[in-house]
Amino acid sequence: MSREEILNRIKQSKTENNLSLPSLDIGITYDDSIIAFCESLKSVAGEMLEEADLENYIKALEHKYGAMKFLNTYVSKEINNPLIPIQMESPHDAKRLDILVIEGLNGIAENGAIWIEEPILYPRSAIFLTQHLIIFLKKTTILNNLHEFYQQANFHEKNYGTLISGPSKTADVEQCLVIGAHGSRSLAVVLID
């Protein structure tokens, strides 16, 4: 069995010492973590959006990317929008999705990332197949840095989660930043109280 062989090799190779783990009492903090979050989000090509502007935002997206048809929303608030939802039973169903509106669980000020956890109401793939992503985030959930995030995070019994920082992007062609690689072409965040 390779397992035993590998573990044996490691046991024979490693040098015993009492190196302990360092304390992790570090991490940048901000006077106003909400402002810092917004700045970070901007730096990763994400957009801030007021709840009231949602309809206009969708119009602006249509203006830029062409007409849209399907929008699914999984936020507790009722939102006004001119589009219709699709049935998403299998992961592949999400391929037709134009806009997905979901809730984020935490925002992180130092990098503009938002924590999304294993969705129950829709397939994971929807987060990445949708052309555009809108995330509702409670202001109170914004933390300064990743240390704070992981200290309070509880992954028990959770199979999946992702930190999303802005829309998908690539710079693989001659270092030119292009927004909209494989995942969503845009990401907007609606901060709510």
Partner: peptide, 21 residues
């Protein structure tokens, strides 16, 4: 915190996905 900043100068990669099951 170190990875993406060192690699491409981003504060974090766009997607940091946790596959725990």
């Amino acid at each position: 915190r170190l990875l993406a900043r060192s690699a491409t100068g981003q504060p974090i990669t766009t997607y940091t996905s946790h596959f725990f099951g």
